[in-house]
Design a binder for these strands. Structure first.
Lengths: 236, 236
DNA sequence: CGTCAGTTTGAAGCGAATCAAGAACAGTGG
DNA sequence: CCACTGTTCTTGATTCGCTTCAAACTGACG
């Protein structure tokens, strides 16, 4: 396990925001300063339960989180994934509540940014870039929800997986965490199944199929996309 | 086909909002006055394409609308349904765009409420009930997206259908459009299939199954729920 | 009365779930 | 350093839910 300085960890947030909008020096400064209070959590730690008021937005500095809904009999559906550089548990709507339980899917480090979010909101004119970034982040989260509906509702297993991989690849690209033609995949196949609405076994077989078709290559827990065009053709 | 006065049609909106929050007399007045400019659309009319800026929020006065995503090969997924009394194409987020194509699923009448929405937003202090109502409507729309993900991802056909029926029943209850133990279902089984991620044929068979199990009763296009508890037990 | 959209029914096939068991792997303590 | 443990991944066999295809039926409407 590597040890990172606070600045190194915060870099992924700045990278991500700068991919979305232009930040003034003052804004960059403000953000960096806000990433100080970091909290580290174990895998499976629940940050917030369903329906909790969204009062503690955070940026993910490392690790992956997810929003989860569990049915009475234990079936799980992951609603959305949060990667390093992502904003978690934020809504511009006053009084908004968590639409699912926020869970650490890996060991994760977050920075609480309640005050930063409040400032982006109330002093929007003074920090236009920051305000725009928060708006875009919120919008993208909603787009991901829609993508989940379409995936789960109308795509075959292969298409779902390919679509998710493509989305994750692009998100890593934006956050500057892409490595070569790929990224690090820390999720278990079971978690992927709960994301895609597939059984663990079928996730495994689907991945093998994609590898056979040269759509995906894995080196340890690094996933690589040899040919984006091919990936797009498999995805629906 | 019955002809309704503007006031009669607008009643469903007031009923809905009053179920969500308390409105002052001034607010009630303001809303009623805003429902004047109504537009009537044919089945399959597209109000807005995907990605269009959400600049024209409307209330549904009669008929059902839906947001639709279409894959290249023609597969459709309906993201959300909009019933009489519902707010369509609204987002409090400036610059938000349509997450799907807005389609009339039946003949529909809508009232444009762009100015009302703007006022609820900018004069929130002056119209607290109205502002709260808009916030709640937006929140409920998001909850419905999440429900769609869980349905499509982790529920069996019967559970999906039962869950949707229950949700629709409650929404009719809120809007005051419940009729006895049921409501009017104007959608075709094909449209229901595109909502639930099922084939038309299987929608048909699933409905028959629910009827056999006394979960659902249909009289013409009226759907009735003899026993809500039983419905809940089928839904996951 | 014929047309067309929507519903219903049957038969066959496929995709994914399930069940079960083994292999690879990481972490742990002796 | 290696045996032990538990988690994750992998594989095969079987079952089942749903889709697909095709055709008949129903009802509204011109």
């Amino acid at each position: 396990m590597s040890t990172l300085t606070s600045a190194q960890r915060g870099a992924v947030v700045l990278r991500h925001l700068q991919a979305l909008t232009t930040l003034s020096a003052a804004e960059t400064e403000l953000i960096s300063g806000s990433l100080g209070r970091t909290v580290s959590h174990e895998t499976n730690h629940e940050l917030m339960a369903v329906d909790t008021p969204l009062e503690h937005p955070r940026f993910v500095l490392s690790g992956w989180l997810g929003t989860v809904r569990t049915l009475r009999d234990g079936r799980r559906q992951i609603l959305d994934l949060y990667l390093p550089g992502d904003l978690v548990g934020y809504s511009s709507r006053p009084g908004a509540r968590a639409k699912g339980s926020f869970l650490c899917l890996t060991h994760a480090v977050c920075a609480e940014v309640g005050d930063l979010a409040a400032r982006a909101h109330t002093h929007a004119a003074q920090f236009p870039g920051l305000a725009a970034a928060f708006r875009t982040l919120e919008d993208e989260a909603e787009q991901r929800l829609v993508a989940q509906i379409v995936r789960n509702g109308r795509m075959m297993a292969q298409e779902r997986m390919a679509d998710l991989i493509w989305s994750l690849y692009q998100r890593h690209e934006m956050a500057g965490t892409r490595i070569g033609q790929g990224f690090v995949m820390p999720l278990t196949q079971e978690t992927l199944g709960d994301t895609l609405g597939l059984s663990t076994v079928h996730v495994n077989r689907t991945l093998q199929q994609l590898k056979r078709e040269q759509v995906l290559r894995t080196v340890g827990n690094r996933w690589e996309i040899p040919d984006p065009a091919r990936l797009a053709s498999v995805s629906a």
